[in-house]
Simulated scan of single mutants.
Amino acid sequence: MDALIYTAMSGAERALRGQQVHANNLANIDTNGFRATMELSTSRALGGYGYDDRHMSEMQANTVMDRTGTLKSTGRDLDVAINGEGYFAVQPPGGGEAYTRAGAITLDADGTMTVNGRPLLGEGGPIRLPQHTRVEIGSNGTVSIQTPGTADMQVVDKLKLVKAEGAELTKNAAGLLVARDNQALAADNTVAVQAGHLEGSNVSAVEEMVATMSLNRTFDVQMKLFKANDAMAEAGNRLIGG
């Protein structure tokens, strides 16, 4: 009976935490460039003498799905989407390097290109644009501008574009993607971008709803196990009490 309690408790906790992961995915179904979080359960032995046959279910939700989202045309010069595999590099608070598929670029007061308030990185660090009348982002990530009084486009910098498998990345507390080894990824010249477009979330509403329904059923089963354990405990007490 003691082992059954651990089984039911562990299973119920895993189901509840799994629902939180899928609820967060659904909440970001309209977030440009969002990468769905995947949840995986593993078995963990319970520490302490006499608990060798007790195991808990440990949920891991630190892997992202690298499926590509749908590209949407916006016609805006500063909107850019990754065409295929790859990520933009941004500078998170506190320094370092993080990665995102979001490409709705804005310019702050001093001309620094940012995505969701975080500086967009180029070959030499954050990209800062001088005064200009037009911006153009090439398919290889080059950023060109037309300065006032000129007709030619001049290359200012090049976006740092990287490539990594989903299993090589995890999300930090801010929801940005970072390398598991906390090292900066090398620029990859094979990554292509498409200006005037944004990538939608790669969350599938159907998949998330099915997963949530499955977890609801799992939680119901664990609650029935709790009730079954109570019934067995009561029967055992009656037998012992005569």
Rank of each mutant, 00 (worst) to 15 (best):
M56W: 13
M153H: 02
L16M: 13
T63P: 01
K171A: 09
V80Q: 07
A228T: 15
H55P: 00
A89I: 05
A235E: 12
R67V: 13
T150Q: 14
G94V: 03
I145W: 03
L71P: 12
L71T: 05
G200R: 01
T68S: 09
Q91H: 01
N62G: 07
E165G: 08
P93W: 03
V221Q: 13
D230L: 11
A173T: 10
V155Y: 09
A8F: 02
F88L: 07
A27W: 05
G48K: 05
V193N: 05
T68V: 11
I105P: 08
A205T: 11
A12H: 03
L161V: 02
A174C: 00
I240L: 15
F34T: 07
A15P: 06
A151W: 02
D66N: 12
I29C: 04
R101H: 03
G122Q: 02
G196L: 08
G175S: 06
A233E: 03
A3R: 13
Q146R: 15
G141W: 01
N182T: 09
N25L: 10
D157G: 09
M113Q: 09
R14E: 10
S144P: 01
A98H: 05
T112Y: 07
L40V: 05
D66M: 13
R180L: 11
T106L: 09
Y51D: 10
S139H: 07
G47N: 07
G18T: 07
N140C: 00
K158S: 14
A36I: 02
N140Q: 12
L26N: 04
A151V: 12
L225G: 03
Y49I: 12
E136F: 02
M213G: 04
M213A: 13
G111H: 09
N140S: 14
A15E: 11
N28P: 08
T142K: 05
R238H: 07
I105M: 15
A186L: 06
G103I: 06
L16S: 10
Q146T: 12
T170W: 01
R44L: 11
Q154S: 15
Q20G: 08
A104T: 10
